[in-house]
Design a protein around this nucleic acid. Structure first.
Length: 759
DNA sequence: GTAGGGTTAG
């Protein structure tokens, strides 16, 4: 017996384990409880395969308490919760009570299922030893409700330091700073773990000053304490502070471990400085410790964020068997960051297991790289599989994708999904909803979300303001500005851009001037808004004067406003001046040529108009082809010029014909520039916006109930001709038609447009 | 056999 005992202690590999097993069989000891328990213990230590371990277990004809307990330990180490409970049932039938020491292990390794052990203990009225008590309390600290943990804590006849530490970190885990603090002060005796828990707790709630205060006050510090403080800084984006503290740690002659290394590496990635990380890893390697997968993943991420994708991929490939979810996710994010969606998608489909972050990475990746529709498809796929619940991060990406598409039906569906699945949104999430509703033209809902928010930040205000601006609701935007001041929320440069744009789109000259005057240090964008405001209200000379007197060089956008206004107000002199400035600033922009040409045309100066068109052709300035789209039944219907691919194409062109007839009857064909004049074949390319948009409007008319609000969404500027057409149709059909162009809405009612744009 | 620190998504 002692001979085998000696061998058992020496065993380091699975091969040696199997040799011992064979020797036991030879000596007919293999089915004795003592040896079976030993073998299972070794299986646990060496991470042997479940099939082999189970075989060993069944060697014992009537497994005793030790065999069973070791087997429970093995299962719980493997995360096989079902097997753990099955064995428990078996033991109950055989009337075998597990030894106390397995309970803490089982509770810890069973995750959320740990609660079943508490139930089990309660049901059997088992006496808890101090370890079991601590483990049960630790379970509630981790998974909640924290009140249950507190109850157990209060009921304890005696409390060890470990119990105090558990409940304190439990409160930190649930963000209850006050109670953690209170218990810390009450605690009769503290150790380094207690102090470290306070440091990391404060770091977790982003209160780094308090964290540092505790860190400086603690009577002794372990490496873990240093790590807590350094990673606290790193987590909160304070890379510089993290590195400084790390240097301080080194100056004390302390040895960093791998966790230190992870924090320093991630700080380096924020600073874009791989050098320090490389030297640190080298130093650790010299000590003989090879960087573990945490360090390697941090390095992977660092190289990816510093733009060295090859190095990142090399580490990823080198990790081989050690690759885990986090490494896969980091690599996917690396690809989406540089816009390589194909590679990201390839990895995503290859990965053996996915978690919420994997889905979030790929969905956000699509959303950020202009693939909004794909982002939504992936989201649908995610929720269809039902094994993972989307969280706020998922929803923010999906909501913003709906916003970018201007897809209100989808947006409503997503918002519904939020309430049905009780996904609570933070400020960030609510802001994304405001953005989405604004982009979809539903200002009522955007405002409702805003008003129902418990806390708002400056971005909440800016998002809603920008929405009002796009919708031409100047008064509402100004109201929001005074609300901001009432609530002592400091407006920033974006706020003022929104407010001025709103004034501009609703013709509020005096109000806009007053706001502009109140800006402490206006930048070029604020000047641009003012030029636009003067232009839109027809004060072109004032606009010109502002341009001449502004303290910085005007950019193309500024002249653009003036040029468009020059067309509307038929100011050939200013039009020529600004157009020539624009030809210098952005020679490739065809719009400027078209505008100047139209200015000449409207004054009957056809030769000049043709000359400019010729200039445009000679310069090879082509107009990009465009399309419009309409959302209907959760789908996006896309229209391009001359398009007959839609299945309702025949009906669409029929409606288009009816529109034409109605307009003729109403006498709208007199104007040469009217929408439905027949265009020459070669002109068609220029008219692309008009045509695709008309198809979209026709489709919208076709599918909507009489009297319903029609929503046309498009990604082009609403051209002048089409604008007129919609005005007329809204009048004739007695319908409200909402059209979105690049970033603003036009609400047509009774032949009038809500915006103050010049048409 | 109890308690403190780690990498990824917005």
């Amino acid at each position: 017996m002692s001979h085998f005992n000696f061998i058992a202690k020496q065993i380091r590999s699975q091969n040696q384990l199997k040799q011992l097993h064979a020797q036991l069989i030879q000596n007919s000891l293999h089915n004795q409880d003592f040896w079976v328990a030993q073998l299972i213990h070794l299986c646990t230590r060496l991470h042997a395969a479940p099939r082999y371990t189970t075989q060993v277990f069944y060697l014992a004809p009537q497994p005793d308490v030790f065999v069973c307990s070791n087997m429970l330990k093995y299962h719980s180490q493997m995360g096989a919760t079902n097997e753990v409970f099955a064995l428990f049932d078996q033991m109950q039938e055989a009337n075998v009570k597990p030894v106390a020491f397995v309970y803490p292990l089982l509770i810890k390794s069973s995750g959320k299922a740990g609660i079943q052990f508490h139930a089990h203990l309660l049901k059997r009225g088992l006496n808890y030893d101090k370890y079991i008590q601590n483990a049960v309390m630790g379970f509630y600290c981790k998974y909640g409700p924290i009140e249950s943990a507190r109850e157990l804590f209060d009921m304890m006849p005696e409390r060890t330091i470990a119990d105090w530490n558990s409940i304190i970190s439990g409160y930190w885990n649930w963000g209850n700073e006050v109670e953690a603090q209170k218990l810390f002060d009450l605690m009769p005796e503290k150790n380094v773990i207690t102090w470290t828990a306070m440091v990391s707790g404060y770091a977790k709630v982003n209160d780094l000053e308090s964290a540092r205060r505790y860190f400086d006050k603690m009577p002794e510090k372990s490496t873990v304490s240093w790590n807590a403080m350094i990673s606290g800084y790193a987590h909160n984006g304070l890379a510089q502070e993290a590195i400084e503290l790390f240097n301080e740690m080194m100056s004390f002659g302390l040895t960093p471990d791998e966790t230190t290394c992870v924090a320093v590496v991630s700080s380096c990635s924020m600073l874009g400085d791989p050098g320090l990380a490389e030297s640190l890893v080298k130093r650790i390697a010299e000590k003989g410790t090879c960087p573990n997968h945490f360090v390697k993943t941090a390095l992977l991420d660092m190289y990816a964020k510093c733009g060295n994708l090859n190095m990142a991929r090399k580490i990823f490939d080198g990790l081989g068997e050690c690759r885990n979810l986090v490494t896969w996710n980091a690599m996917i994010a690396a690809y989406t960051r540089v816009g390589d969606l194909a590679s990201a998608m390839g990895l995503f489909h290859q990965m053996p297991k996915k978690n919420v972050i994997s889905w979030n990475s790929i969905i956000a990746g699509c959303s950020q790289n202009g693939e909004s529709a794909m982002a939504i498809e992936l989201f649908k796929e995610m929720i269809a599989s039902k094994d993972l619940k989307p969280d706020e991060v998922t929803m923010v990406s999906v909501i913003s994708a709906c916003g970018h598409l201007g897809a209100l039906e989808l947006g409503n569906w997503v918002a519904n999904y939020l309430t049905e699945n009780q996904i609570r949104l933070s400020i960030l999430g609510c802001n994304s909803l405001i953005f989405m509703y604004s982009k979809c033209g539903s200002m009522r809902k955007a405002r409702k979300i805003f008003e129902e928010m418990e806390n708002r930040d400056v971005i909440s205000y800016n998002t809603l303001t920008t929405g009002f601006a796009a919708y031409g609701s100047g008064a509402e935007a100004l109201e929001l500005l005074s609300k901001m001041k009432q609530e002592s929320m400091q407006p920033d440069r974006i706020t003022y851009i929104g407010i001025l744009t709103a004034c501009s789109h609703s013709g509020l000259l005096e109000e806009g001037k007053a706001v502009f005057k109140s800006i402490k240090d206006p930048d070029i964008d604020h000047y641009a808004c003012m030029v636009d405001l003067y232009s839109r209200v027809g004060k072109l000379d004032e606009a010109k004067r502002l341009i001449d007197n502004m303290p910085m060089h005007p950019h193309a956008g500024i002249y653009g406003s003036l040029l468009n206004a020059s067309r509307v107000h038929k100011r050939i002199d200013l039009g020529e001046f600004t157009a020539n400035k624009l030809f210098e600033l952005e020679p490739e922009n065809s719009g400027n040529y078209v505008l100047l040409s139209n200015i000449y045309a409207s004054a009957g100066r056809w030769e000049d108009a043709d000359r400019i068109r010729g200039l445009m052709k000679a310069g090879g300035v082509a107009k990009a082809t465009g399309w419009s789209w309409v959302e209907h039944g959760g789908k996006i219907h896309r229209f391009v010029v001359g398009d007959h691919s839609h299945k309702l194409s025949d009906d669409i062109y029929r409606v288009l014909g009816e529109m034409k007839k109605k307009m003729m009857v109403a006498g709208y064909m007199a104007d040469k520039s009217c929408v439905l004049r027949d265009v020459e074949e070669e002109e068609k390319e220029e008219m692309v916006g008009t045509h695709s948009e008309k198809l979209a409007v026709a489709f919208a008319l076709l599918i909507s109930e009489p009297g319903a609000v029609i929503r046309v969404v498009k990604n082009l500027r609403v051209c002048r001709d089409c604008h007129m057409a919609i005005k007329i149709i809204s009048h004739l059909e007695k319908r409200e038609i909402i059209v979105r162009d690049n970033n603003r809405f036009h609400c047509f009612r009774d032949g009038l447009c809500s915006c103050n744009d010049y048409w």
